[in-house]
Write a protein that binds this DNA or RNA. Structure first.
Lengths: 114, 114
DNA sequence: TTCATGTTTCGTCATATAGCGATATATAGA
DNA sequence: TCTATATATCGCTATATGACGAAACATGAA
C-alpha cells in the first residue's frame, strides 16, 4: 500500500506530471527542467527527488550535471503501468503541449549559468 | 490536467484506496464504510465526496441510506484505467485483505444506529 | 588550494489535507 | 406535526505540502 500511495502522491502535482511529460522526450538536467517550468531551482530539485523516491525517474551524474530520465519501472507494477499510460495521456493537454513545443529551445548550454 | 490530478489526489490517501477495494466487493452505505475502516462518520463522508468528485464512485439514495458503488468510468479514461487495474492491484496487501475478510460481518442492519 | 557552477539541503512561510466533534439536512414513520 | 436515523456540512486542530531564498555540497578548472 505504501508503495502505491507514494507513486500516486508523486503524480498528484501538476509540475511533477509535467516533468514526466518532458522526460518522455529526452534526458534533462535540473536546470533545464527548472527553466522549462519556471520554478526556483530548489523547488525543481525537490520535485525530482519525490519522483525518484517513487521510482518514476532515475538519474546519473555527468560532471556538474545530473541527468534525469524516466525509470523503466521493471520492479514496480504501478510505475510501469502509469509511465506506460502517461505516454499517451495528457498529450493533448494545452499546458503540456506548450512545454513540449518550447523544449527544443531549452538547452543546458544556453540556459544554465551564463 | 486538472481532471488527471483530481483522480491522482483521490487515490493518494490509504483510506480512500481501501474504500475502493471494499466497493469492489459490493455496494456499501456510509456507515458500513465508516465501521469497516474505523473512521468518524464525518471523515468517511468527506472521503466519499472526494472519490465521487473524481468520478471514481457514484451513489444512489435508498430511503435514509446512501449507497455507494464504483463508477464505470466510461467518461474518464484515467478512472477507467485505474479502477480496472485496482481490481488486481493491492489484492495481496495485508491491510486490504484484513478489511475484505471482515466485510461479511459488516451489515448495515447491525452496524448502523442501535 | 581557490574559484566557478550545477545541484542539494535547510529554514521559513502560506496553503492544503485528514482527522474529529458538533450541527445541519433529509427521509421515514408515528 | 414531531421523532428517529443516516448522511452531509461546518468549525477547528495538527500535520503535510509546495513555494522561495540562503547556505551547503560536489565537481571540474585554474
Amino acid at each position: 500500500m505504501k508503495e502505491f500511495i507514494k507513486v500516486m502522491k508523486a503524480l498528484s502535482d501538476p509540475n511533477r506530471v509535467k516533468m514526466i511529460k518532458l522526460l518522455q522526450r529526452r534526458v534533462l538536467c535540473v536546470c533545464e527542467i527548472q527553466a522549462s517550468l519556471g520554478l526556483a531551482q530548489s523547488t525543481a530539485s525537490k520535485h525530482l527527488k519525490i519522483l525518484e523516491d517513487a521510482g518514476l525517474i532515475t538519474y546519473s551524474k555527468d560532471g556538474l550535471w545530473v541527468n534525469y530520465r524516466l525509470a523503466d519501472g521493471a520492479r514496480n507494477p504501478y510505475v510501469a503501468n502509469l509511465l506506460g499510460n502517461l505516454r499517451h495521456w495528457l498529450e493533448e493537454d494545452i499546458e503540456v503541449a506548450a512545454l513540449i513545443a518550447k523544449l527544443p529551445e531549452i538547452r543546458r548550454e544556453t540556459i544554465c549559468g551564463t
